[in-house]
Amino acid sequence: MNLNQIDLNLFMTFEAIYTHGNLTLAARHLNVTQPAVSNALARLRERLDDPLFIHAGKRMNPTPMAQRMIGPVRQALRLLLTGISAEEDFDPLTSEKVMRIAIGDIGETILLPRLVERLRQLAPLMTIQAFQVPRRSIPRRLSLGEIDFAVDIPLLANSQLIHSRLMSDQQVCVVGQNHPLAGKAELSLDDYLSLTHILVSSRPRGGGLVDLELGKVGVSRSIAVRLQHYQSAFHMIEQSSLALTAPLQLTRMYNCRTFPLPFAAPNLELQLYWHISTDQTEAGKWLRDQIFSVI
């Protein structure tokens, strides 16, 4: 089929329906009426000879053909948008760009304060929006331009994403200054296993990196509390006999006692991710330079 037989605007409607799973929400996103979306979908169905979406309750589920189409369609729309909106003479001093970054607890605590301070000096009109998104949605959100960057642990390879290591930090055991073991010179493995621990994780279940390593030698630690953020964990160990395993850079921000882990554990590594379509834009290159310079 030749593309000149299809109104290319139909692919924008297709992408909106796929993203929102609902004609009303797609129409709202496109700022058109629901009948207009229904009509566009009907025309695309006729051209492609496939229903594309099947009603299942209040949601429209994509057919196998729609699932095959969505990646190339999103890439094409993203590249087109980038080409139209590219700033040939990007000037950070006058740019009013909103930089949207998906970032977790560690990156938000270590990276963002430095980055905000740098942008206030070099790009005073820019603003930053930071939030957490589910890891599995990062490639899609980058491809749609909903976020400009993501900071996360190493992910599976994706041909549409470019990444570079942002930071690598060793993990240490942390207790409060008044903890019974705070006066020791070092912790043994038995000491570590005798502690009651806090686990910080954005996931609702499963252990962390250290739990995987402990499992390799046939032991496990006692976890009494599971939290989403390190900040609350550090405050908790100040007022309890609990222990925490955390990146070394974070511990320097709190009044606590740190010990090297008494077993081999990998460093916590964070990568910076961005979409291939923004790799050569002036704004994208400049912002990446600022992120890497402050870390």
Rank of each mutant, 00 (worst) to 15 (best):
F90E: 10
F90Y: 05
F90H: 11
D91E: 07
L93W: 01
S95P: 02
E96P: 03
V98P: 05
R100A: 14
I101C: 12
I101W: 12
A102L: 03
G104P: 10
D105T: 14
G107V: 09
E108L: 14
E108K: 03
T109E: 15
L111F: 09
R114Q: 12
R114T: 06
V116D: 08
E117H: 12
E117Q: 15
E117T: 14
L119Y: 05
L119E: 03
L119N: 04
L122N: 13
M126I: 15
I128Q: 03
I128C: 02
I128N: 00
F131D: 15
F131G: 08
Q132T: 13
Q132A: 15
R135Y: 04
I138K: 00
I138H: 01
P139A: 14
R141C: 06
S143L: 13
L144T: 08
L144I: 06
D148K: 04
F149M: 10
V151M: 07
V151C: 07
I153K: 00
I153L: 01
P154E: 00
A157K: 05
A157M: 08
A157Q: 06
S159G: 12
Q160F: 14
Q160W: 15
L161I: 01
H163E: 01
R165G: 04
R165A: 13
S168I: 12
S168Q: 14
S168W: 13
Q170T: 15
Q171K: 09
V172W: 07
V172H: 08
C173F: 10
V175T: 02
V175D: 11
Q177I: 09
H179S: 08
H179P: 10
G183E: 06
G183H: 10
K184F: 12
K184E: 13
K184P: 13
S188F: 06
S188P: 08
D190F: 02
Y192R: 11
L193A: 11
S194H: 03
L195Y: 00
T196Q: 11
T196R: 08
H197C: 04
H197E: 01
V200L: 05
S201H: 07
S201E: 04
